[in-house]
Design a protein around this nucleic acid. Sequence first.
RNA 1: GCGAGCGUGGCGGAAUGGCAGACGCGCCGGGCUUAGGACCCGGUGGCCCUUGGCCGUGUGGGUUCAAGUCCCACCGCUCGCACCA
Length: 821
Amino acid sequence: MDPERYDPQQVEPKWTAAWEERALYRADENDTERARFYALDMFPYPSGDLHMGHLEAFAGGDVIARLKRMQGYNVLHPIGWDAFGLPAENAAISRGIHPKTWTRQNIDTQRATFQRLGISFDWSRTFNTCDPDYYRWTQWIFLRLYERGLAYRKASPVNWCPHDQTVLANEQVINGHCERCGHLVEKRELTQWFFRITEYAQALLDDMAELEDRWSDKVLTMQRNWIGRSVGAYVDFIISETGQTVRIFTTRPDTLYGATFFVLAPEHQLAEQLVAGTEHEAAFRRFRDTVDRETEVERLSTERDKTGVFLGAYAINPVNGERIPVWAADYVLLEYGTGAIMAVPAHDQRDFEFARNYGLPVRIVVQPEGEPPLDPGQMTEAMGHEGVMVNSGPYDGIPAGEAIRRVTADLAAQGRGEFAINYRLRDWLVSRQRYWGCPIPIIHCPSCGEVPVPDDALPVPLPDDVADFRPKGESPLATVSDWVNVACPRCGTPARRETDTMDTFVDSSWYFLRYTGLDPERPFDPDRVARWMPVHQYTGGIEHAILHLLYSRFFVKFLHDLGLVGFREPFRALLNQGMVVMHGAAMSKSRGNLVEPATIIDEHGADVARLTMLFAGPFEDDVDWADVSPEGMARWIHRVWRAVRGAADSGAGHGGASDPALVRHAHRATQAVSDDLERFRFNTAVAKLMTLSNDLADAVRSGRGSATEQRDTAERLVLMLAPLAPFVTEELWHALGHTESVHLAAWPGYDPELVRVERLTCVVQVDGKVRDRIEVTADAGEDDLRALALASPKVKAALADRPIARVITVPPKLVNLVTAR
RNA sequence: GCGAGCGUGGCGGAAUGGCAGACGCGCCGGGCUUAGGACCCGGUGGCCCUUGGCCGUGUGGGUUCAAGUCCCACCGCUCGCACCA
């Protein structure tokens, strides 16, 4: 036996260099034989070195890539960097160095850590989104969107982060706070660039059918909720005083007869008009001031009382001609629907609360079936469920569900409304008043207006020499006069460039296409894309459940409509790793609980770092680093090392007599581990490999199994461990006498005959309690089992002469004797 | 409030409705050592009258020959959305 200890610090760098030199993990563009497999990991932000979350994600993604490679696929496993963006910029500002310098440094650091970790990337097609060769094509896609009216500029109330001094997309506002810095977000009326993602709302919902079972329900549900489709009707009310038509959206047109007031969002222009010059103007102004001063969080809190003011006007209900008072109230949002609602307090909880606060009438128009009729005076909450129409003229007596259809149809026939679908999804606000991003390729000309930069003038470069990167509410690019001032591409008169940059999520919405080949002439080569995509397996954090994944899906649908890609969904299957925390809290420098992958590699080596993460629990669950033990993994690697070396030596004559049990274990483990890895059950795969290595170690120690059997078991162990721990397995593979890399070896198969169980323990129960265990052959039938069970002395004792009422047999695993009771 | 998910030893976690606790950590005992926080071997859910038996998967009910697993109610935790009409 080899007493020498396995030393990862010596072995790992050797193989990193060897793999690099041989370009072992390069995808083969010319191979037409092997099936292709695109294994993609979400590319990282270069803000410092890789963290533990990266370790888990990339370890998992690498197991998939390596497994597929061994299974004979032509694997594309690329990496790049999402290099633009606020975090990089903020860090650069606080350190007083250029964002580009800081970003490049971090990329170098992360690249080195990836290589130390032994992640099997194809380094020949790496890129950063801040390279002009990349963002040139981001701009190109922007212009395609612009041409089709899907990129546009408009003034609207937008989310503004006072700390980062920039606007944010709806998706980047978490509970009223900035996703990045955590500051309270304000609403500001600003002119900004948007992508018309709402155009694709229905397609984004419909195409999810393709993703069922291959994306988690959690992510699909989150996306569905985010898009927020609701079906209802537009209904036109008429303002009694002015004769203006005001359209509302409702999902409950059946309750139209129960509308007792009408509400406009405080910011609604009509509210302003209605009170102008009336006795209600002063009260309305005070109300608006209060609302404007409130933060989004305060205003949107459901805890807080709903407030509003009467506007002195009345709206005419189209179904019954009734005049109902028009109010402005803070619980109605300008951005959703039409910014105006009919209020039906009897059947809508929000309207109910508002009506109670202001003494407005409650009129029931749907009565629950089979229950005593509701009394408005006794109600403590709105009645939102099914029932039968009452107080509703011609609709009385019909079920509410049917009334929805009939009322809508009748209104449509009279031209006073129509069937409607509304989405919660808003257009994607993509402009940012910051420096470190992709410039928007538009020029503002005093005579031509907005003029797109011609394709042949791309890229619009991001200038390096900016005096001050600090945020001031306007992009720092505005201060670079020789960049800003250009001739209009259309008429040649002096014009100004757009100074806003694009949201980083624009950069990451198409990067996966560019990995198919760094095409100098185009964003990507459609033929290559057709060969590699859609991505077979995408791995990354659940935090991108909405943002990145929704935006990427939108981009691909758009590119599909342009005829550039032949599919509508970019990621065929999605795997989300859990978060890595420390004592239940997120790791961070300020908490002082930060553990970095580099530290673990220094201490125990990359294999141990990878295995520790993979064994910690199910891949999709959170990992608490405080609960895991790299030491245990280091011990196991060492045991594997000794056992495999021992088996290799037994070729020199140390093997013993043949042991069919060892052979069967090896084949059964091959089946089980293959199955586990295929289903991303890395933790149980490791457990089964541990059991196998323990058995092998015991066999080697006690001379069990022939030299060939020990060796075959050792080879299976090494092959199956290779995707998880690439370094020690490469070393052992060579120790076993192979000269080619284990990572190019074929994944082991198994003999079905050996996997099949021959003899096993059958459990004998009496009334469901285990009373004996008997050895049986796998082909034992019901009669055999019954006879063996009845012959057991232990069973006889347990039965104590009671008659057997029933015998349940599950051959060959179980017999249950049920006595009469 | 709405939606989704989860509750199993001291800990992380295993378990197609069919022997609960695989595998590992930790701990205990032993070996090897001048010594070890190295390495090796063994033990380790609780309780008992200790050959053997009883109890045990958040709580209470149910279905079943059989429930951690399926159904109902409740308690607790986590995540997502949150005045979306």
